[in-house]
Design a protein around this nucleic acid. Structure first.
Lengths: 207, 207, 207, 207
DNA sequence: TATGAATGAGGATTCATTCAT
DNA sequence: TATGAATGAATCCTCATTCAT
């Protein structure tokens, strides 16, 4: 596959990956121009297709590249001994913030990939996405300690509400962050705000 | 504008709107083919560009067209005298179900439009989306009766959790519905499930 | 298929057909440049692909176009009541000369098509070639009066020798003609030479 | 030149020659891939272009290489003391069969080269082809004993008919052989069939 | 108004050839 | 000598948009 690409020196790999992610994020798969990518990465047209079979191959390579970072920097670091969903929830936010600080483009790319319509990559992506989602849901929320929840409510549904709250909170923050540069973000404030939600949920859902 | 389009007889307008929505939903903005649209709508290529300035103009027209239906069939019908967010929440689901039954493609189109990456329409859509969202949030959740909430929790944040629950629940159902045809959907079951969430939230968040 | 092409006015059709045949004859399928064809035909790049699906579609159209001319101007005109193979043989040469005079490029194109290696068209051509050859052999040599041949020789093999002689004679003449322009060809001389062969074969093979 | 190539050890030369012939036979000049050739020959891309100036140089080298084999294994072995064309004719077929058994690809390559359309090599090949053909015709048929022929026919023309018969017979057999593997060919049967033609021609053309 | 033929800039991809090592 | 990464001109093809009728 992309074995040729992996032999390049890391600096060059980075230039290409960054240029390609940027272009795909801005324009989506179909609209992204390989001309633009090679110009930005400062390589020749031929090289891109020497490293990757075609545009689709490049796109899927980037998806796998990003997935792996997310796996290593996010999923692998979660403390699976913590079975309190709200505590895990908090930890996940911390990890996510760390991830965004270090790899800001990667989240954008994963989002674009998730909603990509282009027929050429849709089926490949759907397979990978589905796999990733089921795997991660299982891993992240399969071992929750349900005994913590009030006994007069359905714990499963409460868990769902917590997950949706986490998702909603995240996209709310991302929406707010859109107009700001990374440096202008006040992560402490975000964390503090999140703690309010956690407290609220604990107070209402837990025994 | 699309004033020329609006002079057409409604049946023809419908054919064009439906053909275009179908194509955009299936393939996204960039990938959608005007050839396909005119073929499906049974009009000539020239006509399409006589009615609409360009592909982008058509897309944005459809967005406005769908927005208006959503406004009329959804927002306008909400009983603003009901200030209990959970009751309103339930009503909204009923209206949404009604809307999906009558205009199944419109929801799809709005979703596609929301995640469209194509540079040509991205900024225009973002402006309209933001506008619509802030307006509707204001309208839908600006007059909530916060006195119903327990006094030891922050009502604003509780409202947010309810909103995110509603959103999460909706997309969960849509995800499930993906493989099913409209006829196979059991709306009563969905409603019953939703009622469980409403009860749960009432029990936990209300006095 | 090429219905769009067939709606063009004949003069334009001719320009395109001639330009394309010329290019394919000179360079073969793969090496032929669609740029060159549109330049020579004085049409735009887009038009060529509006008329024909792709390069292969154009090539196969030309093949069918040439086949039909050969069918009408050659096969259809052969007098099937003449069962003497040598007389028919002579008639075929006359028709062939007539055909070359009127459509000089067509023979060249059919030869190029016959020996085309390019994988993209090879199988399509082989099917058509095989069909044409078996059909024409059947038609041309299926009803020969074998009673004219000496009884001490195998008539079937004698027929084959005659066919090969005809083929060999034709390619010999074509080889000679390569350096000459059409106007410089002395068809009467060719015919006279052929008559010598016919006499010889009659003298040797017939009773 | 290809002097650099000739310094290689024979085993390597063979690998390259065989790989290149195979590729050119399968795909023709233009369509043949130098990548495929170096992969099959197990040499580096750079080497190929170190040994040969360019693709055309490689192709023409192969042509000369094959020509020489044909010269040594075919023309050089013909018994020039045999002036009876039909006997020589028979001997040629035996030699040809021997040649095909030992170098099956070479015949294919010569045929492909003969009908190659690619502009880059066409003129070079035509020169060599013409040279070879005239030389060989001269050598093979220049010293025929014409006194054997019946006096009431033109011997020169009879010789041509015999040559064309031989050519036609050969291509008929090759056409039949196309779908068969070399091992499945029954050379004895071919020879027997050929003898029928020789007898027939002798009976009809000789005194 | 309506048509559909015509356009051409732009896009992805190929591949013989070069060249630094 | 040998390598294989790098190149970029050339190629086929697409498709929104225009325009003469």
């Amino acid at each position: 596959m992309s074995s040729k690409f992996l032999k390049l020196n890391p600096e060059k790999q980075d230039r290409i990956v960054n240029a390609a992610i940027k272009e795909f994020v801005q324009k989506g798969f179909k609209n992204a121009s390989t001309d633009e990518i090679v110009k930005e990465a400062n390589i020749s047209k031929g090289s891109l297709f020497y490293y990757f079979k075609d545009k689709k191959g490049l796109f899927l390579y980037l998806y796998d590249y990003c997935s792996e970072i997310v796996m290593n920097e996010f999923f692998a670091k979660i403390d699976l001994n913590e079975h309190d969903i709200l505590k895990r929830f908090r930890e996940m936010l911390l990890l996510k913030i760390e991830l965004i600080k270090r790899y800001p483009e990667i989240f954008e790319f994963m989002k674009v990939a998730y909603f990509e319509d282009a027929a050429e990559v849709k089926s490949d992506l759907e397979r990978r996405n589905k796999e990733m989602i089921t795997r991660s849901y299982q891993e992240l929320f399969g071992d929750i300690d349900l005994s913590k929840f009030r006994e007069d409510i359905d714990a499963k549904r409460a868990v769902n509400i917590i997950i949706w709250t986490m998702e909603g909170f995240s996209s709310q923050q991302q929406e707010k962050a859109k107009s700001l540069s990374l440096n202008d973000l006040d992560f402490d404030e975000i964390l503090a705000e999140m703690d309010h939600y956690i407290d609220l949920l604990k107070k209402c859902f837990y025994k």
